[in-house]
């Protein structure tokens, strides 16, 4: 079973590329059971968005771009 440290690796990876079906599934399962990791996921997503607020002219980057 996947633990938090590995879950954070997938959360981070999701900001940079599309996850495989298996990666998505195992991450989703872990997030459903772990409130700390749900917060971490929100915060990684927030940090991914800082660029928009630094440079309003840039389009929001898709992970696979």
């Amino acid at each position: 079973m996947m633990m938090c440290k590995e879950a954070t690796r997938l959360m981070s990876l999701r900001q940079d590329r599309s996850l495989s079906f298996q990666e998505k599934f195992t991450l989703r399962l872990h997030l459903a059971m772990c409130s700390a990791c749900r917060e971490c996921d929100r915060q990684f997503t927030l940090l991914h968005g800082v660029g928009r607020h630094y440079d309003p002219e840039q389009d929001d980057d898709e992970p696979s771009a």
Partner: peptide, 29 residues
């Protein structure tokens, strides 16, 4: 995250494996 380069671009520019980029970003985050 600030300049919006993809990990593919970053790794190509720096001549490192994309997997290394992902590991470094994980740690940085």
């Amino acid at each position: 995250e600030l300049m919006g380069l993809s990990t593919e671009e970053i790794c190509r520019e720096l001549g490192i494996k994309e997997n290394n980029c992902w590991v470094m970003l994980h740690r940085a985050r």
